[in-house]
Amino acid sequence: MSTNPLVKPIIAENPVTFQVLGICSALAVTTSLSTSLVMSAALIFVLSLSNVTISTIRAHIPNSIRLIVQITIIASLVIIVDLVLQAYLFEISKRLSVFVGLIVTNCIVLGRAEAYAMKNSPWPSLLDGIGNAFGYAWILLLIGSVRELLAAGTLMGHEVFVLVDNGGWFTPLLLMALPPSAFFLLAVLVWIVRTIRPEQAEQEEQV
């Protein structure tokens, strides 16, 4: 198994399927591929820069205010992303609404700061940040594609399946537009990954 911080989080220690973190946003923004894409880009930016910044000053962060310092840095990066989205991608930022702001509370970001950036030098921390963000991103993009395709017959707004309404054959699955479908898809994904890699499954609890 790879120990490279860039590769490890893609499948082996994927933040979503293995550590089951960042689920709330994965449910909320995956209604379409375009919102998933923008959310992924936002998280890649925040996670890689927060890891590098925190790792750079890690020797001088007093333990007593450790979490406050980390959250301040993360929140500042999130505000910057939010402003940039509102300036350049106004329509999509309205659809993402509060979820970009909620990256602050995304367990993946603070989790990587605590678990990795506080203990490692900036370069491996950058790789770890990018790796974890991509681990989150590919799952978001996969679920976003499936949901948009089955709920509206489109991908990135382009028609793929011709709808019955437009004289085609495809009847959209309305469930896919609703949050529970993201849960089902995520569960199926975790099942597949853990069937291929049985070592990821939790041990059965001893009674």
């Binding site: 406050i68 310092v69 301040t72 840095i73 500042s76």
Partner: peptide, 13 residues
Amino acid sequence: VAFLVALGCSVIV
């Protein structure tokens, strides 16, 4: 450290 982090972050934002 708290002051410097707050200052740096607020300037960038």
